[in-house]
Nucleic acid binder design. Structure first.
Lengths: 326, 326
DNA sequence: GGTAAATACTTTACCGGTACAGACGAGAAA
DNA sequence: TTTCTCGTCTGTACCGGTAAAGTATTTACC
């Protein structure tokens, strides 16, 4: 106990005794209290776990995830907490969640059927979900995906568009919006689809006239393939909305390959406002990535509110990839 | 013990007993072995600590640091290890190092006089230093800063330049290269300065004719101010080399503000090959950021080699910001 | 039928701390 | 003088696991 005090609470013993303890510690090669033992004894680790849907290597490639982490980091730094990134490894990740030395989790954009969810619940630690269906967790941070998507579609409707195409991630075989909504594993994707539908049906255009296309993956190549499918249709859409900026950039590429002029013959809109979107002049929906991370951590640390749902605003950013319907 | 086995080693007990244990666990609300206790007992935490010179918020803004983390993450993922980012907090960071629940540290670009170094040593955990003077640590990963800088200066010499300016970070009051080398806190900075000197003196140009300029900070604003000082001198340099791309971009800005044409009247070179460098057409030195992180972690995990120093190559990337001397 | 080896559990002995409650002497207040 | 308080230091009792060795009970095999 005296040793513990010597290292952790200098005010609890006289300077002489303290120095004697520390000297002996040096002599014996004792490097201070063991963090593992302290964690066991105190029941606190001093670190927050971050769980991301994608593998870590992908997370560091994705600017949105990096910005989210930035937000988490900013609060962690204030609170003197470490950040523990829990890796994603096929079939082993539940185990990694179970053994993570953390006081709580921030969970980013998790699929509905992710096996790690059970592990998180069993840990009985507080956790905050980002981009996950609110209501399915006590602490939830979301952006207003639906409103953002609705505004995008409305913007296109206001420009006179009536023939729409939708580009979705992952290979899918659904034909109708309802099938798609039922099959989608990510809350965010469903909300965006709902948002587009809100506006399009609101304008009196039946949603079953909207062409849905998807392709494997979730990146530019995905958008290129899926966008190509839409552009090769007999009744080509005049406007294409995409689940992400990366996919929208792929659609632009597909259009260029086919000699379809954007925005004269085709309008394209993305989602996220990634840095590349600004450079490409892509119309998109801006969302506060960093604030998502910060808000989640704040919810987690505020033990006074056991249940809370934060909805952060989105903003339509019109750029040069959208224009009046030809 | 039987409970421990039920959760961790199903093959050590009969399915019936195991099910009985798990059922009782559910009934009692026991969520599986406590990671803290396991860490204490096993003496392993399953996580690697990453210590960065800058605050975490800055680390996530800096593409080089993010790529380094990416490299660390790629190896962690293979090895099923977590990554714990240790925040940087003035006067408190040694404590955070002492309490971090990790099996080892990767230390990125630490200043010579950083107080956390003592804490790291006292932990008696393995650690690998990136961008730190090799020889001062058992495990070191560096890039060939000196050779990279030398090639940059040589490239300018080959283009006919003889009047050089150097832009350094942080406000400094040194006049000679030796003073600068003694005052600099970062190994990387010293090596780059040495590299430039190697080439310039090698061409028969005395290094005391080279104008040194610095300004507070380490970013674009720093380069703009320091670059401005150089450009406002009576005997303006025809070539300016910078410690980083960010600062080089600031120099470009300063040149533009003064109507100095790059590269016709002034050549500018950076270091790092940040994404912005390519867009700005900046001549720079490419370095394998990601591989630095991965190599450090591999050294750390390979307990067979208690001492090892890795030197990764750099590559000169000539672009349009350098041209023959006017 | 007897012994070796495998299977299925259990016991023992730590891992290295911290919270909290004494114990004890010295000076302050009653 | 007695009692209270305070500053220092120490003792007790956990925190919740796991490795390794020990004990039965089967099964395997000649």
């Amino acid at each position: 106990m005296t040793v513990s005090n010597a290292f952790n609470r200098p005010d609890q013993l006289s300077p002489e005794l303290r120095e004697r303890v520390l000297a002996k510690a040096r002599e014996l090669g004792y490097g201070g209290p063991d963090p593992g033992a302290r964690a066991l004894s105190k029941g606190k680790t001093g670190s927050i776990g971050v769980i991301i849907d994608a593998p870590l290597t992908l997370a560091f490639t994705d600017p949105a995830a990096v910005q989210m982490l930035h937000g988490v980091a900013s609060v962690c730094e204030q609170e003197e907490l470490g950040i523990t990134l829990v890796p994603r490894i096929k079939d082993r990740d539940a185990h990694l969640v179970r053994t993570a030395l953390v006081d709580g989790f921030v969970v980013y954009c998790m699929a509905d059927d992710d096996a790690r969810m059970d592990a998180i619940l069993e840990r009985r630690l507080p956790f905050a979900m980002i981009d996950y269906e609110p209501g399915r967790a006590d602490l939830a941070v979301n952006i207003d995906d639906r409103v953002g998507a609705r505004r995008t579609a409305q913007h296109l409707i206001d420009l006179g568009h009536r023939r729409f195409g939708v580009v979705l991630g992952w290979e899918n075989t659904f034909n109708t919006a309802d099938e798609a909504l039922a099959a989608m594993q990510y809350h965010v994707d469903r909300e965006r689809l709902r948002g587009w539908r809100d506006a399009i049906e609101g304008a009196g255009v039946p949603f079953d006239t909207v062409a849905l296309a998807s392709a494997p993956g979730f990146d530019q190549a995905t958008g290129r393939v899926a966008g190509g499918k839409l552009l090769d249709r007999a009744n080509r859409p005049t406007a294409i909305v995409c689940e992400s900026d990366q996919m929208a950039l792929g659609v632009l590429q597909a259009a260029q390959e086919r000699g379809v002029a954007v925005p004269q013959q085709l309008s394209v809109a993305g989602f996220d406002d990634a840095p590349e979107a600004a450079r490409a002049g892509l119309t998109t929906v801006r969302q506060p990535h960093q604030e998502k991370g910060a808000a989640a951590l704040r919810l987690l640390l505020d033990t006074a509110t056991p249940r809370a749902s934060v909805l952060l605003p989105t903003e339509l950013v019109p750029r040069s990839s959208t224009a009046p319907s030809p």
